[in-house]
Design a binder for these strands. Structure first.
Length: 592
RNA sequence: GCACCCGUAGCUCAAUUGGAUAGAGCGCCUGACUACGAAUCAGGAGGUUGGGGGUUCAAGUCCCUCCGGGUGUACCA
């Protein structure tokens, strides 16, 4: 028997096979293998319980039979895995230290982990729609989560073998352009003369324009007309639009560099302007879309909240009554384009939780439409998140009630981190402290956003985020820095093979070695639901196991054999921590 | 009105998607630097998982019902 990269999966599959040849088992049996409470073992199979219940059998006897069959098979070498029966019919699996040692030998470098992880997505064509910010607006705190969560998920998909396209689906074709152009023309603004803070000015012009529309509602018709002119290719409006988009892109690029956001293509809503007609035609042709109140809409009567006879009807509006396209039209055109141009097998959308209705309608519409036309429907998923709250549990704002600018947030994170580094490590020269503050500050900000379950709101607190205690980026970075420090002192390259090492012996060594293996499960779990906090929790536990080991067992000892086996644990921990941090978009440090 | 989400220790969050005695951090209390970096570690106190009912061998997790909070409700994106 060879050690398995992913024991959970391997045990599951072995038990399934064995069960088919074991009396009392049959169709519908799933072993149900999952990580177990360490008191009982490394993994447990609890599928026998449910199966026995459904078939009115004695679960304990059935589990006993399966366990004996497993032991008799050649799938479980007793020198590597110990099996036992417990409680009402749990089967527990404990990996021996020999197994763990062989696993450590078999999987040492990032490439080794990745070669195993690649099976999770095996070259699947995935388009991830992120960070998809709006143009003509300054980025604020609301843009933090799409950038942070998006890049973490993108890196994870890439690492796990997806053939990935990061598509920045910018909002460059919306109704807001009507208002903005109206205001620009009214004030006769020359966009080329705005200088460095051009986006700030645009942002203000839009706000002023909207305020003006409230005061003078007749201006709305002018704005609407400017939008229609733009959408019909009017030369002067198109020229203005080009300038606005360019100003926005320059500003976003500056943030992307700071945030570590990578984008493969930028195909905004405007790219689909000549592709929406086909959507109207096809959806009408197959009888899915129909006129309602002058607009073209799709009803989903089978879903209660979208049904047409509701008190407040809520159709999927794909063309406004003035004939203009909208969010829905371009999103539909985008799905089709991603299928035809990229052969997308999977599309991942990232937006906040408030857009769930839109995506439910989009997915339902696509499903019916693609089925009628015989198109291959990609798997579509909506990765959404909650709001960042202040201490008062209301959306996080400045004291005066303004939204916090993303740039200001980043600058404050750096400044606060710099102050702490200076306090903890005053001897480092300033340039290095600045570099450390960059990684620690931005990393802490990102980690705070990633470490709690994304579907929930979370409370933002500088104090907790940068207190550097508990489940935070600095705690993980500190663990890496301490490992690096040991390798510097010993004079060994942490990336090089370590000679003379042997299997883990002490309690702390074994606990750490086991925890290192947990990376596989953590990746799988994170990927299954695209929830980065699973990976964060794992990395925190790994760093914790390392810290315990560090305090309990000294690495730099005279006994070369002991030193070698501990150095090997340090090297493996370092590799996994650095790989994990990299997946989260956080830059590990040599010193901090 | 209708739909969806949430309620877990004083505070901030977990709980491998129905598994065994609900776990961390902060804060509080007790210890560990002549030891590889104390931004650390070891330990302690702290819970009727909003209330009630139900399904199940097994419920924080599923169903019903109340209470409390949030979000969405076509021509913004």
């Amino acid at each position: 028997m060879k050690v398995w990269f992913n024991p959970s999966k391997a045990i599951e599959s072995a038990l399934s096979t064995i069960a088919t040849e074991t009396e009392g088992f049959g169709l519908g049996f799933e072993p149900g293998v999952r990580p177990a409470d360490p008191r009982f073992g490394d993994y447990q199979a609890n599928g026998v319980l449910g199966f026995a219940k459904r078939n009115k059998a004695n679960p304990r006897q059935l589990a006993q039979r399966l366990l004996e069959a497993a032991q008799a098979s050649d799938s479980f070498d007793p020198a590597l895995v110990e099996l036992s029966l417990a409680g009402p019919g749990f089967i527990n699996f404990k990996l021996t230290s020999a197994f763990i040692w062989q696993w450590q030998l078999a999987f040492s470098k990032v490439e080794d982990f990745q070669s195993g992880a690649k099976e999770l997505k095996h070259g699947r064509k995935v388009v991830i729609d992120y960070p998809s910010a709006n143009t003509a607006k300054q980025a604020h705190i609301g843009h933090l989560r799409p950038m942070v969560i998006g890049q973490a998920i993108a890196r994870l998909l890439d690492f796990c073998g997806a053939d990935l396209i990061r598509d920045n689906h910018i909002g460059d074709w919306g109704t807001n352009f009507g208002t903005l152009i109206m205001k620009i023309k009214r004030d006769q603004i020359d966009l080329s003369q705005l200088g460095e803070d051009a986006l700030v000015t645009l942002d203000q012009l839009y706000k002023d324009g909207s305020a003006l529309e409230v005061e003078q509602p007749e201006l709305r018709d002018i704005s609407r007309n400017e939008l229609v002119l733009l959408q019909n290719g009017d030369a002067s409006n198109t020229a203005l639009w080009d300038q606005i988009v360019e100003i926005s892109k320059v500003a976003f690029e500056k943030l992307f560099v700071q945030m570590g956001v990578e984008v493969d293509i930028t195909l905004g809503e405007s790219f689909y302007r000549d592709k929406v007609q086909r959507i109207y035609d096809e959806l009408s042709e197959i009888g899915l879309a129909e006129e309602s109140d002058g607009a073209l809409v799709v009803w989903h009567d089978e879903v209660k909240k979208f049904a047409r006879n509701n008190e407040r009807p809520f159709p999927f509006n794909i063309r406004k009554k003035d004939g203009a396209s909208n969010y829905a039209s371009t999103d539909l055109a985008t799905v089709l384009y991603r299928l035809e141009a990229f052969q997308a097998e999977e599309i991942v959308y990232l937006t906040d939780a408030r857009q769930q209705d839109h995506f439910q309608q989009l997915f339902l519409t696509t499903e019916k439409w693609f089925k009628a036309k015989g198109y291959a429907k990609p798997q579509m998923s909506h990765v959404y998140w909650g709001t960042i709250l202040g201490a008062d549990k209301k959306p996080f704002k400045t004291k005066s009630g303004e939204s916090i600018k993303l740039q200001e947030l980043l600058d404050e994170a750096r400044k606060r981190a710099f102050d702490v580094v200076t306090e903890k490590n005053p001897d480092l020269d300033k340039a290095e402290r600045v570099e450390i503050a960059e990684s620690v500050g931005i990393g802490a900000l990102k980690y705070a956003d990633l470490s709690s379950n994304r579907t929930q709101d979370y409370v933002f607190s500088w104090e907790r985020l940068l207190s550097f205690e508990g489940n935070t980026a600095p705690y993980l970075l500190y663990a890496v820095a301490r490992i690096n420090s040991i390798f510097r002192k010993v004079g060994v390259d942490p990336e090089a093979p370590i000679e003379g090492a042997s299997q883990a012996e002490t309690e702390a060594e074994l606990a750490l070695a086991r925890k290192i293996m947990g990376f596989v499960t953590a990746l799988e779990l994170t990927l299954s639901d695209l929830r980065p906090h699973f990976l964060c929790t794992y990395l925190y536990e790994l760093a914790g196991a390392y810290s315990s080991f560090y305090n309990a067992d000294k690495v730099m000892v005279d006994d070369d054999a002991v030193k070698a086996r501990r150095l090997l644990l340090c090297a493996r921990t370092r590799t996994v921590l650095m790989t994990g941090l990299d997946l989260l978009g956080i830059k590990p440090l040599e010193r901090m």
